[in-house]
Amino acid sequence: MASLSSRPVVLVTGAARRIGAGIARTLHAAGYDLVLHHRASSAEAATLAAALTAARPDSVLTVQADLADGARLPALVDAALDRFGRLDGLVNNASNFAPTPLGTITPADWEALTAVNARAPLLLSQAAAPALAARQGAIVNLLDLYAEHPLAGHAVYCMAKGAQVTLTRALALELAPQVRVNGVAPGAILWPDGGKGEAARAAILARTPLGRLGRVEDIAAAVLWLLRDAAFVTGEIVHVDGGRTL
């Protein structure tokens, strides 16, 4: 194990792009050293790591893994400890999203969506738990409002994220009092990579009391609060959705 870093260390999965990259930037600016996980976005991960390292040398490690391969997950924790000597936080941000209309669902669909959205957060949290407990650390799971308010045509995804909600609460019990475990459930923050029609976008915003798309920074701020400031909060799901769940 490396010598102990003087700064807290957080492992962020799916950190190369979109919300994950925003979380990484916010945590780094707040003084955290980071382990940035990615699966296929090697160029984006390298660009982000270079920018953060330029701001503070020797503060970032990038790691690559397919989270669907459960055997690879303990190595991510080992890499963090080998580099920094500690692990203070885990942000299970990586997600797999795809439609599964009823009548077309296959076992492969089930495996693909549950492996990353439910099984990986469990196994990675399990692997990280001893190191987190040693630092009185915290876990934050990135969830989805669709876990509690299902989206038509996406039954498997909604079920997987629902399992992650239950996992968040179960781990809060299992790991207390040494480790706090909470979740953040975003609303409309970024439209999917494949796009969304104007009518669908307008309908979503019409159901959002604040009447606008959220910002990545809104999610990142909630994650930072749960990791750093919410010392008496565990087992909670923070909805950052502009009031949409109302």
Rank of each mutant, 00 (worst) to 15 (best):
Q64A: 15
A65T: 11
A65Q: 10
D66V: 12
D66K: 13
D66W: 12
D66Q: 10
D66G: 15
L67C: 12
L67W: 13
A68W: 01
D69F: 03
D69I: 11
D69M: 03
D69H: 14
G70K: 02
G70W: 07
A71T: 12
A71I: 02
A71P: 01
A71Q: 11
A71N: 08
A71W: 00
R72H: 04
R72I: 02
R72C: 06
R72W: 00
L73K: 09
L73H: 08
L73N: 07
P74E: 05
P74W: 05
P74R: 06
A75C: 00
A75L: 06
A75M: 00
L76C: 10
V77W: 01
V77H: 03
V77Q: 06
D78H: 08
D78Q: 15
A79L: 02
A79D: 14
A79N: 04
A80I: 04
A80T: 11
L81K: 05
L81F: 05
L81N: 06
D82K: 09
D82E: 15
D82M: 01
D82N: 08
D82S: 14
R83Y: 02
R83M: 01
R83H: 12
F84W: 04
F84L: 01
F84V: 03
F84I: 04
F84A: 06
G85Q: 02
G85N: 05
G85H: 05
G85C: 01
G85E: 04
G85K: 04
R86T: 06
R86Q: 08
L87N: 06
L87P: 03
L87Y: 03
D88S: 12
D88T: 04
D88G: 07
D88K: 02
D88W: 05
D88V: 04
L90Y: 02
L90E: 04
L90P: 04
V91G: 08
V91Y: 08
V91K: 06
V91T: 03
V91F: 02
N92L: 06
N92E: 13
N92D: 10
N92C: 14
N93W: 11
N93Q: 13
N93S: 08
N93M: 09
S95M: 09
S95A: 15
S95T: 12
S95D: 12
N96A: 15
N96W: 14
F97G: 00
A98S: 15
A98V: 07
P99G: 13
P99Y: 03
T100L: 11
T100I: 12
T100E: 09
P101M: 10
P101A: 11
P101C: 12
L102S: 14
L102I: 15
G103S: 10
G103W: 13
G103E: 07
G103Y: 13
T104G: 10
I105W: 10
I105Y: 08
I105M: 08
T106L: 07
T106P: 12
P107L: 09
A108S: 14
A108L: 13
D109R: 11
W110Q: 07
W110T: 11
E111W: 02
A112E: 13
L113Y: 05
L113V: 06
L113W: 01
L113N: 05
L113T: 05
T114Q: 11
T114G: 02
T114R: 03
T114Y: 10
T114L: 14
A115S: 15
A115M: 03
V116A: 07
V116W: 00
V116T: 14
N117S: 04
N117I: 07
N117H: 03
N117L: 08
N117D: 12
N117W: 02
A118C: 10
A118K: 00
